[in-house]
Simulated assay, not measured.
Amino acid sequence: MEIIPAIDLIDGKCVRLTEGDFSQQTTYHSDPVEVAKQFEALGLRRLHLVDLDGARAKQPVNLPILARIARETNLVIDYGGGLQSVDAIQMALDAGAQQVTAGSIAVREPKTVQKWLKEYGADRIIVGADFKDNFIAINAWADQSDLTLESFIASFSEKGAKTFICTDVSKDGKLQGSSLDIYQKLIASFPDLQFIASGGVTTIEEVRQLRAAGLHGAIIGKAIYEGTISLEDLAKEVI
Rank of each mutant, 00 (worst) to 15 (best):
I3F: 07
I4S: 03
I4R: 03
I4A: 06
P5R: 02
P5S: 01
D8K: 01
I10F: 09
G12W: 01
C14F: 04
V15D: 03
G20I: 00
G20E: 02
S23D: 14
S23Q: 10
H29Y: 05
K37L: 04
K37G: 08
E40H: 02
E40D: 03
L42V: 01
G43P: 01
V50H: 07
G54D: 03
K58A: 13
Q59D: 10
P64S: 02
P64Y: 04
R68D: 08
R68C: 01
I69A: 04
E72S: 06
E72P: 07
T73F: 08
T73R: 02
T73H: 08
L75M: 06
I77R: 01
D78M: 01
D78F: 00
G81T: 01
S85N: 10
S85T: 13
V86R: 15
A88M: 03
I89F: 13
Q90C: 10
M91A: 14
M91K: 14
V100Q: 07
A102M: 10
G103W: 02
S104A: 11
A106N: 10
A106W: 05
V107E: 10
R108T: 07
V113C: 12
W116F: 10
W116A: 03
L117A: 13
L117C: 09
E119Q: 15
A122I: 03
R124W: 07
G128K: 06
A129L: 08
K132T: 09
D133H: 15
N139S: 14
A140D: 14
A142T: 13
Q144W: 12
L149D: 11
S151W: 11
I153P: 11
F156E: 09
E158C: 14
G160I: 02
T163D: 08
F164H: 06
T167W: 08
S170C: 12
K171W: 04
L175W: 05
S179E: 03
L180H: 12
L180M: 06
D181T: 10
Q184P: 05
L186A: 05
S189W: 06
P191Y: 04
D192I: 00
Q194K: 14
F195V: 02
A197Q: 04
A197D: 00
S198M: 00
G199F: 05
T202F: 10
E205H: 15
R208T: 04
R208M: 02
Q209Y: 09
A212I: 00
G214T: 01
L215F: 07
L215I: 07
H216K: 14
H216D: 12
G221D: 02
I224R: 09
E226M: 09
G227A: 09
G227W: 10
E232W: 03
D233Y: 06
A235C: 03
K236D: 12
K236T: 07
K236P: 06
